Simulated scan of single mutants.
Amino acid sequence: MNGLNQIIFVCANDTCRGPMAAEIMKSKFLHSPVKICSRGLVVLFPEPLNQKAEAVMIRNGIMLDKHESVQLREADFGEDHLIITMDLQAKEKIIEEFEGAQNVYVLNEVVGEEGEVPNPYGGPLTDYGKCYDILNKLITKLVKKLNKEELECLK
């Protein structure tokens, strides 16, 4: 993942897990500057962050009041871009639908964990809190991995 310029977190409609993951990542320290954002697989019109996801983010000290969902597009792919999905189904859909798809991984896969990030949509607020906790744990591992790779490149 050397020479990374952009990390894009992708979820179904860019109103919950993707934006949460992007903002958690932005709250961490990376040795090298990287653009971090989120996209959706199906975005028919711009939507704000899911209210329960927003409440969980605020409770954890992260404000996301200006978020509007954005559709994933062909221009989002590049050699220096890392596309991270929340589940295997999204990864497969991206690879199938985008001719230029490259560097597409499931978050758990990138950090060497089993499973996927559960979708809390439609569940109680506690499900969103659990999703935040899972994302925070996985993204902390991702940041450590990226920072370690960066330091190894400097040697």
Rank of each mutant, 00 (worst) to 15 (best):
4 L>I: 10
5 N>Y: 13
17 R>Q: 02
18 G>A: 13
23 E>T: 00
25 M>W: 02
26 K>S: 00
27 S>N: 04
28 K>A: 14
28 K>W: 14
34 V>A: 02
37 C>K: 10
39 R>S: 11
40 G>R: 01
40 G>C: 00
43 V>W: 03
44 L>C: 13
46 P>L: 04
46 P>W: 07
51 Q>E: 06
52 K>D: 06
57 M>P: 01
60 N>G: 11
61 G>V: 01
61 G>Q: 00
68 E>H: 15
72 L>A: 11
72 L>F: 12
77 F>R: 10
77 F>H: 06
78 G>N: 01
83 I>P: 03
85 T>S: 00
87 D>E: 05
88 L>H: 07
93 K>M: 13
93 K>T: 14
94 I>N: 04
95 I>D: 08
97 E>K: 15
98 F>D: 09
100 G>D: 09
101 A>E: 07
102 Q>R: 06
111 V>I: 14
112 G>L: 14
114 E>P: 05
115 G>I: 08
115 G>K: 11
118 P>C: 09
118 P>L: 13
126 T>F: 08
129 G>P: 07
129 G>S: 15
133 D>R: 15
134 I>C: 08
135 L>F: 09
137 K>S: 11
138 L>V: 02
140 T>F: 00
141 K>Y: 13
143 V>D: 10
144 K>I: 13
146 L>I: 11
147 N>V: 02
150 E>K: 01
151 L>E: 14
